[in-house]
Computed example of a mutant assay.
Amino acid sequence: MMQQPSADRRSTYLDALSLDIERKLQKALSSPGQRPDFLQQLFADVALEIEDRALDIIFNKDEDQVNSADDATENSICFYDLLADYYVGAPEKGKRILDLIVQLWSQSFVSHIFALLFHKWLFEVSIENTEALLRYGSALVQGATNIFWIDIQTNRRRFLSLFTYLLEEVALVPDRSNKISLQARRDLCLLLSRFLFFYNLDELLEIFLKNFPTFPNAFLVGGPADIFVIELTDQLQKLKVEPVVLHYISRMSALKGLELRMTTSTRLKACLYSFTSPGGPMYPTRAVRHAAWNTLNLLFPVGQYPRHVISLFFRLLYPWYWPSSCWNFIMTCVRAVVHYILKVLVSCWENIRKSKRT
């Protein structure tokens, strides 16, 4: 008896949200001058985390299960998590919104909104219009790309649920991924390759590579592993946020054991090596340089000592870094000596205690 009122209350609340989104889209359509601002605000509203009071309205506290939205990023639920499920269960509720989105295709943030609201609808609801599927698949990839970059720039994972769905429920499920065009599937896999490590899903790397679609240039660039590494290295060189760079580099240890072509292996090695030296073009911090060295030595243990010697000579090209390098070297040596002395003292103290007992 308690579940029915809860379901009705949830449906009423989501109906109201859907109507509000429709009104805002109509407002954006009728106001060309303020259209970008309206659409940006609508995207922010859809991506907003739901407050506890609103959750109490939507869900019954006594329910054992909420739904897949509970897996939202950082233990929070966003409006798009609920609305995406809502439009799958009630496709007719999203038809008017979808029609308005189609009329605003070329505007900023429209693909973002479409990707958030209709990423599940696209793959779980039957769509007979083949031409529309082509448009929707392209818009999904474009919108998801922009959305994931927002997470990169803020170093948050608010859109983890979207990424997880596209990876686990689409890319790894051929029956769903085949709904969109082959080119859209390729673009989607390239997109997932660029952000897989950021969203900490590298444990799915092996099965993800097995589900890669065919690429027309595979005979030139290599197999799925080569394509994945190429996308990953390109992504890494675009990153500017230090914690994100460190996260990517630390996660790249998952690449150990992959069979790569010589050109791809060299590309990966060069990418990591570019983060080991101060100065341009990457201007890595000390933490990034050390992380890059550790990952480089892990993935390519052969030749690590010659690499360090070569790097030392290149450091001579940056004399303004010499004082800080010398200071860091001295401090490292001091810490090593102090740790060694403490270790010896502790060992001596334990030996004295043992001798007294005997």
Rank of each mutant, 00 (worst) to 15 (best):
P91W: 03
S76R: 01
L100P: 01
N75W: 09
A90S: 13
D99T: 15
Y86Q: 12
N67L: 07
V102G: 09
A72T: 00
Y80H: 11
L98H: 10
D81C: 11
N67R: 04
A72L: 00
L83N: 11
K93V: 09
D71Y: 14
I77L: 00
I77N: 05
D70I: 08
V88D: 05
L83M: 15
L104D: 10
L98E: 09
D70P: 00
E92S: 04
D81R: 04
Y87E: 03
S76K: 05
P91V: 08
V102A: 15
S68Q: 14
I77D: 02
V66A: 06
Y80M: 08
P91K: 04
V66P: 04
G89M: 01
D81I: 07
D85I: 15
A69F: 00
L83T: 12
L98M: 12
S76Y: 00
D71W: 12
L83C: 12
E92D: 03
N75C: 09
N67P: 01
K93G: 07
K93M: 10
L100W: 05
Q103P: 09
A72S: 04
C78L: 03
A90C: 09
A72M: 00
D71L: 13
S76F: 00
D71S: 11
Q103K: 14
D70K: 02
A90H: 11
L98S: 11
D70Y: 02
A90F: 11
N67K: 06
Q103S: 13
D85M: 15
I101C: 13
K93R: 14
F79G: 05
C78G: 04
Q65M: 13
D81A: 11
R96V: 13
D81S: 09
L98C: 10
S68N: 14
D81P: 01
Q65P: 08
V66D: 02
K95Y: 10
P91S: 06
G94A: 00
D71T: 11
E92A: 01
C78H: 04
A90R: 14
S68I: 12
L100A: 06
E92T: 01
V66R: 08
